[in-house]
Write a protein that binds this DNA or RNA. Sequence first.
DNA 1: CGCACCTGTCAAAGCATGCTGACACATGTC
DNA 2: GACATGTGTCAGCATGCTTTGACAGGTGCG
Lengths: 119, 119
Amino acid sequence: MTPDGDELLKVFAALGNPHRMRIIAALSEGRNYVSKLARDLQMSRPLLHMHLQKLEAAGLVAGSLELSEDGKAMKYFEVTPFAYEITPEAVAHAVRTLTDGVTEADAKADTKSVEEVTK
Amino acid sequence: MTPDGDELLKVFAALGNPHRMRIIAALSEGRNYVSKLARDLQMSRPLLHMHLQKLEAAGLVAGSLELSEDGKAMKYFEVTPFAYEITPEAVAHAVRTLTDGVTEADAKADTKSVEEVTK
DNA sequence: CGCACCTGTCAAAGCATGCTGACACATGTC
DNA sequence: GACATGTGTCAGCATGCTTTGACAGGTGCG
């Protein structure tokens, strides 16, 4: 738990897309290979491919290239049993390890309370 | 729990951005008003404004326009104490209420549970 | 009045993402 | 060989998101 900032960001970015949510849903019912998945979800293979590798980069799914009995190469994907507890505090904690625009001179942002105005 | 599909999608899309994650982190330490928040996070007001209303649309933050003692109008924002349990099953369950491309195999849709459209 | 602070909006530019169609490769079967 | 299946990649366009700068309004103070 308490995942890395960049990791959590990738997870959110990956899940923040209806197609990718649907892919997770489809794969949660069992592993499947790309071409059939594309048929089930009615989307083009190149598109599915892009979504899958985005989900894989976020660590939400895992793919393995296998050989079927008739010799064809099939890439099976399955969901990783992830479990994230998303709360404001979890996000706040993850932000500290965010390697993004991070103006390096800004690590100490003054936890000064604003109660002095209108409180 | 077991949030609505579109709602969860908006939450993910909202959280899938480093600036917005940082906004959540900043607001989790206490409420704040827009101009000061912009100064703390070092971003322009119009940009912050857009991000805030996206977070608000996702139900992650709430804003209220108040009057300070010196008569100035200040819009204070604070985080909503959200708590999402994110698992493959949770996503799979939420997908069923996704009003998006609507895979015609699963068009139960309808009966949208009245949300006032904060206009 | 001019300046400080606050609020909000808009158009336009820049950049990332989504998406398609065409290509490459491999294998097994008729 | 022609056709089916499977894999992957690429360029290019369309769409949406991000970002900025300028503008509108408001109040209080010297």
